[in-house]
Design a protein around this nucleic acid. Structure first.
Length: 805
RNA sequence: GCGGCUAUGGCGGAAUUGGCAGACGCGGCGGAUUUAGGUUCCGUUGGGAGACCGUGCAGGUUCGAGUCCUGUUAGCCGCACCA
């Protein structure tokens, strides 16, 4: 009898052994494979079983790749700057530098329990000056290229976090971090010109092996649209109003203009009669929060009293203000064609403005229009020289016509805004800029980087719009590096997304003090082949990283312009009833106890077994019993079989090939839950065989062990050693299967009568159609009472006999 | 409102190109071992007494539909006046 399975002893033994003799080593010949986890921010709550899942997925995949002969880049690090870390520090009353260090220690301990094959020599920490030196360096390069610039304008402001936010950080009008309603605040900001990259960010999505969902989210976020800008002269004045439209084909149907209340001309367009109402409307709009503005679906508006002239037909159209027109999209002004736009239709109805149809639906004008006809299909009517044209065609050509006629031009618009890059917080990379009264903004000289974050006593956000750094005179006051005059440092810090926008590059050369990454190492190890993490970063981190990578490509730091070739989003582990695990809900399941009771290998297996890796799964502790039972049963089978030394039977060989096939295929298609099911199924089969034969042959034990190794590395390594191997199972080559050897000789074929399964026949796998049908008819003779009208035989699958009574 | 995903036993979930629905596991039930409980092992487990019925619901295509098509409902996620 086998000795009992002692997970603690086995796991400890191999943990120590792998530490002493690392198994992932480069020999200069192996190709590289870079499998990356989204690195965690060091939260004070530690890891729960949901965090484990992603790390186990990436580790299974990494080890699987390793057994295919790759040298792995599989690093781990800490995203330790930013709001989450700082808010936690403030809550606990501990300096963020200290709390961050403590949390990293704890999480690192927990991550090590996973038994993943991380290369800790590559570890990075975004708060390490040796790391953020390069974050600052990238900013300086962007500044030099004109991609980082200062601007004063109303930005999103979180009153709770007391800092400005990027558009990407505002979710449904609330702060992405704390859920507080975001307000507007007019502030001087550092911006990054991500919009310069909009087209490339959009186009290059095509070459990525990413979930369609994420690509779509980025596409929508970038929001490219094609249309035209059209200039309308203000009647009786010199001013012009430029509108942006995607439907220039409907220009003849424009019966009024609407400007956003923030439009530069809004106030001055008001005639004396309307002045009061207009000013009140502008004021009211300025007091509305984003959420109010989003929630009030009912259109509001005010007439300015002024008119514009439709450049196409010379007609006077009234100019209105309304907050449904966004100030920061397009030109902040639109031409309204109520007949062919839902919003314009609603507005026109409410305020009694004329509706002119210019596209004939199904060849005629709509008699009693109840809703706008928004499709660009139909013949143009009421459109002067454009009459008779096809709308869809005109939509394409109109921008050029307008350009030729000289009152507008073809344009492309994006929803993507430039990245608000400064934060009025302490815990971030200081922006390396010096404000000189003579030279303007001057970057901190590169040789002076890193510009260290000074130690402060008061690190709480001030709420005044100034960073806590502004209070440190000795730090703020400096000399201009260009002219030597008294100057002041920029006191804003970078957002939490700065370090994570490029950290994956640093892993491959994390000790380089001359360069961000050496070109040699970048060429050798980058880009990331597989990136694994949650979907919550679809438009934040993943968009920013792509932007920074493209920039680094442009300045020659790296030779690729997309950082993550393949992306996998794992589903979330939730508590009962799909409720997100959180400390406040009290439904957090910690892995620590489970590791202690069942072992890391069992928990790893269970994490994979709970469901498809890409879908959310509800955690249920009880399920771990099942995988633990499997592991113990396999242990017994393996250890007993090693002793028994039985010879392989044809059945064992066949099962071994089938197992290899099934597991390989399921891992390859990322169906890790069914791969675990395959282990269990084949384990059951092999136990049954072993009962008959006194064990299974050593090669079958070895193969099973190799296949299991990515999932349960410790047990696998132990059994592998007991099979007589001196080297690690992870240095062995992934088992191969042969279709020939897998084949069953005799198969059980279902026989259907009129599509319903009635009988089964056992036949040779290569039986001919005639023989199969004959056997089927024989078996189902008493049911074949009618006339046979059709006979279907799908080899290896099914027989269906269709009869008529 | 628009877009996407999901819907299968008591539960988590399996089912290449349409081809035995419910693999695998949890839970349940019965038995063996045990002084007993737990463990372990064996058996059983969609519903129905049965003909049969069963993949959210209603149709359709097909010899055959969980899978394809049309419509519809519910839940989750994303976007949300982007002209």
């Amino acid at each position: 009898m086998a000795e009992p399975f002692n997970h603690k002893a086995i796991e400890q033994k191999w943990r120590d052994e792998w530490e002493k003799n690392p198994i992932n080593v480069e020999d200069g010949k192996k190709p590289k494979y870079y499998c990356l986890d989204m690195f965690p921010y060091p939260s004070g709550n530690g890891l729960h079983v949901g965090h484990w899942r992603g790390y186990v997925i990436s580790d299974v995949w990494s080890r699987y790749k390793m057994m295919h002969g790759y040298y792995l880049i599989h690093p781990m690090g800490w995203d330790a700057f930013g709001l989450p870390a700082e808010n936690y520090a403030i809550k606990m009353g501990i300096h963020p530098a200290i709390s961050t260090a403590e949390n990293i220690k704890n999480i690192k301990r927990q991550i090590k329990q996973i038994g993943a094959i991380y290369d800790w020599d590559r570890e990075v920490n975004t708060t390490d000056p040796d790391f953020y030196k390069w974050t600052q360096w990238i900013f300086v390069q962007m500044f030099k290229k004109g991609l980082a610039y200062e601007k004063e304008f109303p930005i999103n402001w979180c009153p709770s976090c007391k800092t400005g936010l990027a558009n990407e950080e505002v979710v449904n009008g609330r702060c992405e971090r704390c859920g507080t309603e975001v307000t507007k605040k007019n502030m001087r900001q550092w911006m990054l010109r991500i919009t310069d990259y909009a087209d490339r960010l959009l186009k290059d999505l095509d070459k990525l092996d990413w979930p369609e969902k994420v690509k779509k989210m980025q596409t929508d976020w970038i929001g490219k649209s094609y249309g035209a800008e059209v200039q309308f002269k203000v009647d009786g004045r010199d001013d012009e109003i430029t509108v942006y439209t995607t439907r220039p084909d409907t220009l003849f149907g424009a019966t009024f203009l609407v400007l956003s209340p923030e439009h530069a001309l809004a106030k001055s367009l008001a005639t004396d009669d309307n002045k009061e109402a207009v000013e009140k409307y502008i004021y009211d709009a300025s007091m509305k929060s984003n959420i109010d503005r989003m929630q009030s679906k009912e259109k509001t508006g005010v007439f300015t009293g002024s008119y514009a002239v439709n450049p196409l037909n010379g007609k006077k159209v009234p100019i209105w203000l309304s907050d449904y027109v966004l100030a920061d999209y397009g030109t902040g002004a639109i031409m309204c064609v109520p007949a062919h736009d839902d919003r314009d239709f609603e507005f026109a109805k409410k305020f009694g403005l004329p509706i002119i149809q210019v596209i004939a639906k199904d060849g005629k004008e709509i008699a009693d229009m109840q809703e706008a006809y928004t499709e660009a299909s139909g013949t143009m009517i009421n459109s002067g020289k454009w009459n008779g044209m096809e709308s869809s065609e005109l939509k394409q050509k109109a921008p050029e016509y307008i350009e030729e006629m000289g009152f507008g031009k073809k344009t492309v618009n994006y929803k993507l805004r430039d990245w608000v890059f400064s934060r009025q917080r302490y815990w971030g990379e200081p922006i390396p800029i010096i404000h000189c009264p003579h030279c303007g903004n001057v970057p901190v000289p590169e040789e002076e980087l890193p510009l260290r974050l000074p130690d402060v006593e008061k690190y709480e956000p001030t709420g005044t719009g100034e960073s806590p750094l502004a209070a440190i005179d000795s730090w703020v006051n400096c000399k201009c590096p260009v002219c030597g005059a008294d100057a002041k440092r920029e006191t804003n810090t970078m957002p939490q997304w700065a370090g994570s926008s490029w950290y994956f590059l640093r892993y491959v050369d994390n000790k380089n003090d001359k360069e961000l990454v050496s070109r040699e190492k970048a060429d050798k190890y980058l880009p990331v082949d597989m990136y694994i993490g949650g979907v919550e970063h679809a438009v934040l981190h993943l968009l920013y990283s792509r932007f920074w990578t493209k920039f680094l490509y442009d300045i020659g730091v790296v030779d690729f312009d997309e950082p993550f070739t393949r992306l996998f989003n794992q589903g979330m582990i939730t508590g009962k009833n799909g409720i997100k695990m959180s400390k406040s809900k009290g439904n957090v399941v910690s892995p620590d106890e489970l590791v202690n009771d069942y072992g890391c290998d069992s928990l790893r297996l269970y994490e994979m077994f709970v469901g498809p890796p890409e879908l959310d799964a509800e955690w249920d502790d009880r399920g771990i019993e099942g995988v633990n039972r499997f592991l113990r049963r396999f242990w017994t089978l393996a250890v007993d079989s090693i002793d028994a030394k039985v010879k392989a039977t044809p059945e064992m060989i066949k099962v071994r090939h089938q197992l290899t096939h099934d597991v390989s295929e399921r891992i390859e298609s990322f169906s890790l839950n069914t791969a675990v099911a395959a282990f269990m199924e084949y384990n059951n089969r092999l136990i049954a065989i072993a009962k008959k034969e006194g064990g299974v042959d050593i090669e079958t034990v070895e193969t099973f062990t190799q296949l299991l190794a990515p999932f349960a590395p410790h047990v696998a390594e132990e059994i592998w050693q007991r099979c007589g191997h001196g080297d690690s199972v992870f240095h062995s080559t992934w088992p191969k299967f042969s279709e020939e050897a897998m084949k069953e000789d005799i198969i059980r074929l279902p026989v259907q009568i009129n599509g319903k399964t009635r009988e089964f026949i056992e036949v040779p796998a290569d039986i001919s159609r005639e023989d199969a049908l004959a056997r089927a008819k024989e078996a189902a003779a008493n049911r074949l009472t009618g006339t046979i009208v059709k006979e279907i035989y799908v080899p290896g699958k099914i027989i269906n006999i269709v009869q008529k009574q």
